[in-house]
Design a protein around this nucleic acid. Structure first.
Lengths: 160, 160
DNA sequence: CCTTGCGTTGACGCTAACGTAAAGGGAATA
DNA sequence: TATTCCCTTTACGTTAGCGTCAACGCAAGG
């Protein structure tokens, strides 16, 4: 009984999660409809637990790297199922390994794209500096650049 | 006149590019329709140059990292335009910088996802080893892994 | 001449991932 | 009591990115 006041006892309304993660209620209900979330209910209303919140984080991360919801759902199931028919697990294993190598490829693509976009931006900036120096990025923008850079590898928390 | 026989004189039919990059003619025409490609013509027929091929590579890479075609088109225009209205370039510059930091975020997400998927796979594999060792990956699968790794930067992946 | 094969341009179809009302329940507040 | 929120479900609308015919042109081969 004492152990239960840990912390993860907190729950969330749909609005709270939506504001925190910048998504719409429609999206959350949609994910639920597709089997990615399964919040409990208080009467009619949805009640999201800490675990649900964690799942939502995973869902959104999956989305950012371009996974379709169906894939994300499969991955989430993998996390929550030590059980289940083993044959299916064996099959999942293959697919996940494949996913991994795909994502490694994707990582390379991103690195490439980033560096190319960077050099292209520099070129554009130089050209702009010659013709219209007044249009160049100012303090405001550098501020944003710095924040991005610092958040990058100093604060592993980020997630916004 | 002598300089013109460099190499990039080679051209490609729509089929050739499609086979090389594992896309359909429909896709190429679609990209053209959306302003991402502009091959020359031999009568009615499309003739793709080396530059067109290069653009296609960029398009596909963009797709793999999750960029919408419209974004990719803008980026491609950035590469080919020293000219154009400067004001627009100034605006583009901001957007591209933003894109860059988005993609850096995306890179982190992918790294996270990869390592999580890897540990999940290992867990699953161990569990499988105890119950059904006969279902574990065999030579065949390693073969496929190797191929994936080697082909890595030659072939796209898609998710169909 | 006719088929085979690769090319073309519409035009309609389809899936994913939501957006956007429409219509209503239940609680708190004016 | 009436208004105001926040929640619910059902259902149709929308956008991106092609897939899939349909109908036709042209060139080579049998």
């Amino acid at each position: 009984m004492l152990a239960e006041l840990r912390r993860p006892e907190r729950t969330f309304t749909i609005r709270q999660l939506c504001q925190e993660f910048k998504v719409t209620p429609r999206a959350l209900r949609f994910y639920e409809d597709k089997g990615l979330l399964a919040p409990s209910r208080d009467g009619m209303n949805r009640v999201y637990s800490y675990k649900d919140r964690a799942r939502l984080q995973l869902i959104l991360r999956g989305k950012r790297v371009g996974l379709p919801l169906a894939e994300i759902r499969d991955i989430l199931e993998l996390y929550g199922a030590e059980d289940g028919p083993v044959m299916q697990s064996a099959h999942s294993l293959k697919r996940f390994r494949q996913r991994i190598s795909e994502m490694e490829q994707q990582r390379e693509d991103i690195d490439q794209a980033i560096s190319e976009l960077k050099t292209a931006c520099e070129r554009l900036e130089k050209q702009l500096a010659e013709v219209r120096p007044d249009l160049l990025p100012r303090a405001e923008d550098y501020d944003q650049m710095l924040r991005a850079r610092l958040d990058g590898h100093t604060y592993p928390l980020s997630a916004k």
